[in-house]
Amino acid sequence: MEIASAPPVSPRAVRGALVALGVGILLLAVGWYQGLFVAPPEHYMGEVQRIMYVHVPTAWNAMLALSFAFLSALAFLWKNDWRWDARLEAAVEMGVLLSFLLCVQGAIWAKPTWGVWWDWDPRLTTTAVMLVAFVGILALRHLVDDPRKRAVWSSVATVISYASVPIVYFSVRWWNSLHQVQSTPQTVDSAMVTPLRINAFGMLFVLIAFVTLRSQIARRRLAAELAPPPAASTALAAGGER
């Protein structure tokens, strides 16, 4: 049956991911150097504004990761292809990690500029809700042992939770917020745009690499879970491994 077959681990995908990881690290090295040493300090915020070069790319990539999780969830429900379940697991994990880093970086930037680490303004509150929702999906995946139920339930939960992502994006426009609205290339000095873009692409390559590698790990687990019950002679050897 189509839905019972586990996807094989792909050595080509692993090689591709390692290349992407290398490219990403290279880009980040250039972007960080430019952001720290080449770009000018900000007129009012001074050196502390340099955290923008990681904060903004983190936000973009967190949204990309969660968007890919959303598409993976829909694709799994539509096609019943286990590869999409593996990608979902990888993308949600990366989305949660990046969203968490986003909040930490934001707090570090907020203290010297806003004067507080955190406040329940619309942007920060919706981001916290988004983070909690996707942490919940990771918890759900951890708690459900049946791979079939795990895949279906977490896909449904991911599609529903994804509503929070555009809400986070638009929160600064819909409501009065402590957090400023999105910058555009017109509101950011051109010398600051270059490192921002380089870092954004660097993080994107690292993200692609991590999602690929993590989904290959998820495939391995699926292969073990979906394997037909071992014959009596091999039952002992396979037992306990999950």
Partner: peptide, 18 residues
């Protein structure tokens, strides 16, 4: 008291040092 800043990021003006 919280200070909010806009979405503008500018380099220091010519000759100005932060």
């Amino acid at each position: 008291l919280m200070v909010s800043h806009g979405n503008e990021y500018r380099a220091p003006k010519e000759g100005e040092r932060v």
